[in-house]
Design a protein around this nucleic acid. Sequence first.
DNA 1: GCCGTTTTCGGCCCGACTGTTTTCAGTCG
Length: 571
Amino acid sequence: MPVQNAEIAALFDQAAELLEIKGDNPFRSRAYRRAARLIEGLPKSVTSLLKAGEDLSELPGIGKDLAGKIAAIVTTGKFDLLESLKDELPGDLGEIAALPGLGPKRVKLLYDKLGVRSIEDLYRAAKAGRLRELRGFGPKSEAKLLAALAKPPSQKRFKLAMAEAEAEALVSFLRPGLDKARVVVAGSYRRRRDTVGDLDILVAAHRNAAVGDRLSKYENVANVLAHGPTRTTVVLRSGLQVDLRVVPEQSYGAALMYFTGSKAHNIARRALANERGWKLNEYGLFDGERRIAGATEEDVYGKLDLAFVPLELREDRGEVVLAKKKRLPKLVSLSDIRGDLHVHSEWSDGTVPIADMAAAARERGYAYMAITDHSQRVTIAHGLDPARLSRQIDEVDRLNDELEGFVVLKGVEVDILADGRLDLPDKILSRLDVVVAAVHYKFDLSRQSQTERIIRAMDNRNMSILAHPTGRLIGEREPYDVDMERVIAAARERGCHLEVNAEPERLDLTDVHAQAAKSMGVKVAISTDAHTTAALGYMRFGVDQARRGWLESGDVINTRPLGELKKLLKH
DNA sequence: GCCGTTTTCGGCCCGACTGTTTTCAGTCG
């Protein structure tokens, strides 16, 4: 059975976690984590690489040992190291270590001294005031943990990119049994929400239990929850739930609409049907018993005298009214994008030389790309100090001399220091075409301090774009507390732009904030923050979120030709 | 566990910050 890259990565991450807790050689656990990231980022599955006879130990960070372990996982499904680590350290230690403020050492201490093996154990110990008995713990850390534990466990949602990988594999598995029947993933996935709770797969066919049979035999199915003639519900090994629905051809459009949602959008649409004395449901639009539309979405919208509403807008955020007036926005699309304004190279924590990134960007049909490596404060990424940045500027100049029909813009992703100063002197920043600035440390300032810190950074006239403005990592790190409305207003006053970071873990600005920026007259840059050439392809996820934020091409600075863009970057 | 014109051992991006201590371990990125 084909093992997915993400599964291997997850196994390696778990092993790394337990090795850290155990106190093993830290470089050993780092090797597992590094390998996990590499595997996640591979354009092909290791299963197919192995099948093609590729030597995995040629991959950077994979040696003989790890290559062997990967092969064992792929062929036998077994990962002996993890099994023995789990025997040695039973419990949900990984879950505990994920809590803020708890790392491997303290998890081990809790485990050894208080027998904490689960979140429940931890809660009881903290509640009883026993944590403060431990060296290194005090009342504050106890209170912080209790606060973290008091938060209701957020219902698990999956990042869009991850759901997409699952969905594409699943659809291509289902399709062969279905001739020319349409198979579409609906729901929030189709609306391109940044996270999805489950996959709603719609198949146009007559009552066809065979599709459901096929789904329940999918190799990644962990559990079949329900299985009937028109509907099958399963849970995949990843934990993602899948609902498969089979609807007749003549209802397909109405069903697609219904299962695409959102619920609020459906309600608004149904109200319009009711106004005419009609009925709208997943089987069609009905005048009495007579179906007057239903085969396609266009059909249904048309009969309701509505313009076709782009998927990303179906949230009942005003789109139904505009659809009625036939005045929906013409949303930005991937083909409008002319360049990427946030890209890393091996000068900091990227993986390839600037020239390689430029070549890859050019292959995507772009006219320009800004190279924006980290600044000195971000030591972990080997950030640039003024001297190295100056040398990089020279290198970009040389590179541009060789390039025709493509321009590499000189830039930096400069860290915003705690007091709002930028991490590099104005003298060097003023030599750049693009200054992307971002917060990387001190996430826990008060709302007011954080907001003022960021606004102060924008006071620097060299700053062009505020990158990943809230710092969130989906499912992993909450956004820092910041008054985004004030930030947007300040950006407006200063001619600064905000980023829609397209990296699937970030998608920051969110759709909602992007729309807020537009409504306040602030333009955005949709940028990938790519550290590899493959990651330049994340652009489409950023475009999805921009579309959800109602952005049109005119709202996005990197849809502009270079000359116009350069004017926008000055303020 | 990986890696190697510094090559088969001995390194491996490391500095800031917090809450705990009373000089620093642990966490974070």
